[in-house]
């Protein structure tokens, strides 16, 4: 287990370093940040001052070293648009995004898991078809379209919900539902296929043969086995939720990280973009690391006690 964690951790750290290097060089290749910020008609003096201020007059590898050293000191630069440290600008909006993601994730699980289980248990019957049709509609529906339609219905026509902002509890409703819809489809579908895979396994029949009633077999054997692959997909969902949040925040004027990212891109605020991307990359890599470890703990079959799997027992 220790070797496994070390192995995965070393890979995670390596991936992060690669991602940082990639992000840095991409940013620099993309064009002169000074011109990008000051505009093409800026005076040469202004450009020179800007470059010196941000260390852009050094050769690229030196810049990269400075950049890494700054990162190591927790110095992520200053927002070009707001003139405040990037870390402050971003940390102000992170909680709102996390709230939205958490609620969306919760709702997706709350509906998706039972729907998937029901569909698998009643495979081929009406409820299964209902869930399958619902899920395909769910993830085929672009979240920005759904968001706009909800705005039309609940804000313009019914006048029930506010059009944007994150001030009151009711303002959470539309963004959460919009974010969750696609993931309800994904979760229910994944749960269904995972459950169906388990329901065909011989140990369920063997458990029935030992006299265990169907409900016991479902709760005791089928669900725990089906849950293991679902854990891995939740790790991947985290990334999708972030992407979804950035769109939904724009639609509902939600003061979160996704909207900050989009406005920063539109105003070429590279330090903010860079910091958000680094933050996400590190978060995602550690999420996956955690999922790997969790998977390993949940499933005793994978490399128990770090030993090699013994080849070819019974054919």
């Amino acid at each position: 287990m220790t070797m496994f964690i070390l192995s995965k951790l070393s890979r995670a750290v390596l991936t992060i370093l690669l991602a940082l290097a990639f992000a840095f060089f991409l940013m620099r290749i993309a064009g002169d940040p000074a011109l990008a910020f000051l505009g093409v008609d800026a005076t040469p003096e202004a450009v020179a001052i800007f470059r010196e201020k941000f260390g852009l007059d050094q050769p690229l590898p030196v810049q990269f070293l400075y950049y890494m050293a700054n990162l190591a000191h927790g110095d992520f630069g200053v927002s070009l648009r707001e003139g405040r440290p990037v870390i402050v600008v971003v940390s102000e909006v992170v909680p709102k995004t996390l709230q939205l993601m958490g609620l969306g994730f919760g709702l997706a699980m709350l509906i998706g898991l039972p729907a998937g289980i029901l569909a698998a248990v009643y495979r081929g019957q009406f409820i299964d078809r209902l869930v399958m049709v619902g899920s395909v509609i769910g993830f085929s529906l672009p979240n920005f379209l759904l968001g706009l339609m909800l705005l039309l219905i609940f804000t313009l026509w019914l006048r029930l919900l506010p059009s944007g902002g994150a001030d009151t509890a009711v303002s959470f409703i539309m963004p959460t539902v919009t974010l969750a819809t696609a993931f309800i489809g994904v979760v229910s579908r994944y749960t269904r296929s995972s459950m169906i895979g388990v329901l065909n396994r011989p140990f369920l029949r063997a458990a029935r043969a030992r006299g265990l009633p169907a409900s016991t077999v479902l709760w005791r054997h089928a669900l725990p086995n089906a849950a293991i692959p679902i854990v891995t997909v939740t790790g991947l969902m985290f990334g999708g939720l972030l992407g979804g949040a950035s769109v939904i925040e724009t639609v509902f004027a939600w003061p979160g990280m996704g909207r900050l990212l989009v406005t920063s891109v539109l105003s070429s605020d590279l330090p903010v973009i860079q910091f958000i991307v680094i933050l996400l990359v590190i978060t995602m890599i550690f999420t996956n690391f955690a999922v790997d470890v969790l998977y390993r703990i949940l499933d005793p079959r994978i490399g128990h006690r770090g030993s090699m799997p013994v080849a070819g027992s019974a054919r």
Binding site: R11, T15, L18, A19, A23, L26, M27, I29, A30, G31, G235, L236, F238, G239, G240, L242, G243, G244, S246, V247, L261, V262, S264, V265, S268, L270, I273, Q274, I276, V277, L280, V281, M284, I285, T287, N288
Partner: peptide, 24 residues
């Protein structure tokens, strides 16, 4: 495999937004 895992783990939309920010 490392590249595959890396991309699968990343929120592609965010990376795409960042790429558009730098590449236009």
């Amino acid at each position: 495999s490392t590249l595959i895992d890396f991309q699968a783990a990343m929120p592609f939309l965010i990376l795409a937004i960042a790429a558009v920010a730098t590449l236009g």
